[in-house]
Amino acid sequence: MLMKKGAEANLYLEPFARVLHRAGEGKVVVKHRIAKRYRILEIDKQLRESRTTLESKLFADAKRAGVPTPLVYEVDRAGMRIVMEFIDGRQVKLVLDKLRPKARRKLCELIGRQVARLHRAGIVHGDLTTSNMILTREGKVYFVDFGLGEYNPSLEARGVDLHLLRRALQSIHFRVTDEAYRAILSGYKREFGGGANEVIERVEEIERRGRYVPKEERTWR
């Protein structure tokens, strides 16, 4: 069953027994990166192949770093498919604005801590938006999409990662952007430890570098 038609891939929700092994139970998610006719074959194939392989590795390494991610059951590089665990919960995108301020702060701090864990493990997510995060009933936040992630321990990559998260808040959660971002940074600093301020300074530098940054842009330290 088609669960979501994303920009990059189609997500299907299927019975474990049908996709993997008849003895299995429950459901799995099949992420299929479909061909895009608008781009030439060379670019299309290269992007889909590399993102499929890299994403499955990132899922595993993120989990090892203490960030909840779906278990990867199968990687089909030729078919550009990843079969993974189904995470039952609600998209953070849909709940963030509705939470009470205190609950929102807690959730954002947790997100910030998880981003810090990724960064410490040498991973940048590349697409930190609230639609890629699933909040489960137990209060865990799963990062479910590493399609634009990479192994990159540089200050610049980490800075861009946080900057993108702020940009996502600005475009989707414009009513609560500032308080949410503040809480994310507070969680990030606590988990990352020494050097967190350097990353945050870099975010500010990246934002000043941008084309559309007003002079009065505030700092976040």
């Binding site: 030439i40 060379e42 670019i43 590349g126 930190l128 938006t129 634009l148 861009v160």
Partner: peptide, 12 residues
Amino acid sequence: YIPLPYVVKGMD
């Protein structure tokens, strides 16, 4: 096609 750096960073 000569491979060149393809850069998409999240939405940007």
